[in-house]
Design a protein around this nucleic acid. Structure first.
Lengths: 222, 222
DNA sequence: GCAAAAGTGTTATCCCTACACCCATGA
DNA sequence: TCATGGGTGTAGGGATAACACTTTTGC
């Protein structure tokens, strides 16, 4: 107890909603807590912000420590600070969300957590703390951003087919899209280009492979 | 120094960018600091979050203390936590922004601050801490929200003319709008209604007064 | 040859934009 | 009567939405 202040200070954490797309649906990564409070409950990955560490840095550090994932899209979501959200002490959490493509989808077992698992968003278990509200906020944000930005590309590997791209949009928007209209629209946006490669994949015509023109950037569209 | 912790804790504040529309431009409220650091510099109103107080509550309390304004639109903006943003200790600030209609535009002199003043956003003085970045972020947010929500109504009194409403949009969007197209658009949105009253105001035809259908709500449009 | 996904154009509709004049009032 | 802002409609163009068949492959 050697860090003392004239006035009470809250603890500050980051929690990260890690999204991916798998099994034809949007999934979030949860860890099973092996300490009180909420022992054995599922929760978001996250942890305390170091005292001389930037919030973004803290979030990406926690993400790497608990999932072994680096170099993915990470954005601040919202700050949750209800006084009673943690029974131990006042904890304010700066929530982030991360999007990871299925190619990097083997983060499990990098953590000190008891268990790490992907859950479909419409089939979440009860969550610790106020983590359910955080996940819901993140899902709203990501759906909204799908409509007016190129954020959906962050779920795809470097090379992808237009059908795969359409599938990601359909999952995020929760609606079916017309194939011809989607292709016209996405090509008119001028944000993908043909690689010249094709992918043979089953007993049907092979698909052209495309890549994003600016894979590291999320642009506002429309 | 009687509040002690096992690990170092940051201080947490809220800072509020208070916007209004005056002199045909978007203005922000600043206070002149009368303490170190940044003594005599202009800064955003704000202060420490109480240890058992919600973040939203803290922001609206600070807003009332420093400007005497209550019951206005207040929304969390972003959390700023660069380790060196305050020279005294680690301070993480949860930034908010508030929109106040010109009718409530007499908050000056309610505060313990040395001086409180409205500044046009394209004519800001140098600001303390990283407050310039906070103001810029807030301005981007408000411009973006003007395009897809009814946030602009928050700058208007209960009753207003369509010309006044158009003026607010023009200031926020920084572009001139066609009068007929604007009226068609705003009436089709179905978010205002005629009060039946008119306002006589100078040597010209009097204007019909309208009111918002849901003055307390900001709806997503389009 | 057949199943399965890839790929490709046209038409109708709706929404947005551009644009100019009369109205009611107070001085 | 004149200056001032309030109030109103229409036509053209561009974007969006609906819609079905051919192609290429593996088995």
């Amino acid at each position: 107890m050697k860090f003392c202040y004239e006035y009470p200070h809250p603890a500050v954490t980051t929690d990260i909603v890690v999204f991916t797309i798998g099994d034809q649906c949007l999934q979030a990564l949860l860890i099973k807590r092996n300490n009180e409070p909420f022992k054995d409950k599922w929760a978001l990955p996250g942890g305390f912000v170091d005292i001389d560490e930037d919030l973004d840095t803290g979030a990406s550090r926690e993400l790497e420590e608990e999932t072994n994932v680096t170099g993915v899209y990470l954005e601040q979501l919202y700050t949750f600070g209800q006084p009673d959200r943690d029974p131990r002490e006042r904890v304010i959490t700066v929530a982030y969300y991360a999007l990871i493509p299925p190619e990097k989808l083997t983060p499990v077992a990098a953590s000190d957590a008891a268990e790490v698992k992907w859950f479909a968003l419409d089939n979440l278990p009860p969550l610790a703390f106020d983590h359910r509200a955080i996940v819901d906020t993140a899902q709203q944000r990501i759906s909204a951003k799908t409509r007016y930005s190129t954020i959906a590309f962050q779920f795809l590997p470097e090379r992808f087919t237009l059908s795969e791209l359409q599938g990601v949009f359909e999952i995020l928007l929760r609606e079916n899209l017309d194939k011809r209209n989607f292709r016209k629209w996405i090509l008119a946006l001028n944000c993908v280009e043909e690689t010249g490669e094709i992918r043979r994949n089953g007993q049907h015509r092979p698909a052209k492979l495309y890549c994003a023109k600016n894979p590291d950037r999320v642009d506002i569209i429309k």
